[in-house]
Simulated assay, not measured.
Amino acid sequence: MAGNLGRTSLKCKRRSSDPMRDYDRLPRELRIWLSGAVLPWRPRSVRRAFDAALSRTGGVGPALAELDRIERRIVSKDARKIWGQDHPNVSNVNRV
């Protein structure tokens, strides 16, 4: 795969909106979380996941913790496909 994503099995999508404007509209706590995220989340995707987590958990902190779990699961899934079953991040797949 070309570009700065490196080797990954994750799907890539073309943008039809302005990602910086979408990023600027995110809540402050979510922008801070996103700045330290491992994956290259799209602002719309992370907002949708955050809103769903917020409605399930009822609080910003627990919702961000759920985003951490979602991200770990996605990284684990990708690590298995790219580096194999023995990669250290693969063991977290079934914990979410």
Rank of each mutant, 00 (worst) to 15 (best):
M1T: 11
A2N: 10
A2D: 12
G6S: 07
T8H: 13
S9I: 02
L10F: 15
C12M: 13
R14N: 04
S16P: 00
S17C: 04
D18Q: 09
D18P: 02
P19F: 06
M20L: 12
D22C: 09
D22R: 13
Y23I: 01
E29K: 13
E29V: 10
L30E: 07
L30K: 09
R31D: 03
I32K: 09
I32R: 11
L34K: 14
S35W: 05
S35H: 10
G36F: 13
A37N: 08
A37W: 08
A37R: 10
V38D: 06
P40I: 00
W41H: 13
W41S: 03
R42Q: 08
R42I: 00
S45I: 01
V46C: 03
R47D: 02
F50G: 04
A53P: 00
A53G: 05
L54I: 06
S55M: 09
R56W: 11
T57Y: 06
T57E: 12
G61A: 11
P62Y: 07
P62I: 03
A63N: 06
A63G: 06
A65W: 01
A65K: 15
E66W: 04
I70P: 00
E71D: 02
E71P: 07
R72T: 07
R72Y: 03
R72M: 07
R72F: 06
R72I: 04
R73H: 14
I74V: 12
I74T: 05
V75W: 05
S76A: 15
S76P: 05
K77N: 05
D78F: 01
A79T: 03
A79S: 15
R80A: 06
R80E: 10
I82R: 15
I82N: 12
G84E: 02
D86Q: 05
P88I: 01
V90P: 04
S91M: 01
N94T: 08
N94L: 09
